[in-house]
Amino acid sequence: MARALVLFAHGARAQSWAAPFERLRDQAQARMPEVRVTLAFLELMEPRLPEAMDALVLAGVDEVTVLPVFLGQGGHVLRDLPQIVETIRAAHPGLRLEIVGAIGEDPQVQAAMTEYCVRSLG
């Protein structure tokens, strides 16, 4: 069974915006060499989520976890992502696909962000 983790981000016009997400991808990949870790975007950047999934399936991946790299569960996560996922499931009916909560909703991520807020005051 080949597994993948897709970090799903919004996307932006400035290519430099993707740098922290690329670092996150690279660090996650280093911790999980047996899992393919990739980035996909909602808009403005490539690859978009459906194209990223097509490439993973073509590479033999049959189990994918999509992790929204959003601070909260807004419209993109609650409305847009489920619509995109339905299209992906229709295109790849044998693919095991799990969507997890937005990264910013995780208590450990919240704790790390709180620590950064406190440290920012010196």
Rank of each mutant, 00 (worst) to 15 (best):
M1Q: 15
M1W: 11
A4E: 05
L5D: 15
F8E: 03
H10M: 11
H10W: 12
A12Q: 15
A12L: 15
A12W: 13
A12F: 14
A14H: 14
S16C: 09
S16T: 12
W17Y: 11
A19W: 14
A19N: 15
P20K: 13
E22W: 13
R23Q: 14
L24R: 12
Q27Y: 11
Q27M: 12
A30H: 15
M32D: 13
E34V: 01
V35T: 15
V35Y: 08
R36A: 08
R36M: 08
V37W: 10
T38L: 13
L39M: 09
A40T: 07
F41C: 08
L42G: 06
E43N: 11
E43A: 10
L44D: 08
E46G: 10
P47K: 07
P50C: 03
P50S: 04
E51G: 08
E51Q: 11
E51S: 08
A52H: 02
A52Y: 01
A55S: 12
A55R: 15
L58A: 11
L58N: 08
A59I: 10
V61P: 15
V61Y: 13
D62K: 07
V64F: 02
T65H: 08
T65E: 04
P68Q: 07
F70D: 01
F70P: 08
G74N: 10
G74E: 08
H76I: 05
L78V: 05
R79W: 06
R79F: 07
R79Q: 10
D80W: 07
L81A: 03
Q83D: 07
I84K: 01
E86H: 06
E86I: 01
E86C: 05
T87E: 04
A91K: 07
H92D: 00
H92T: 00
H92S: 00
P93S: 00
G94S: 03
L95E: 01
L97I: 01
E98P: 11
V100H: 03
V100P: 06
A102C: 07
I103A: 00
D106F: 00
D106L: 01
P107N: 05
Q108W: 02
Q110M: 05
A111S: 03
T114D: 06
T114Y: 02
Y116F: 06
C117S: 07
S120K: 03
L121E: 07
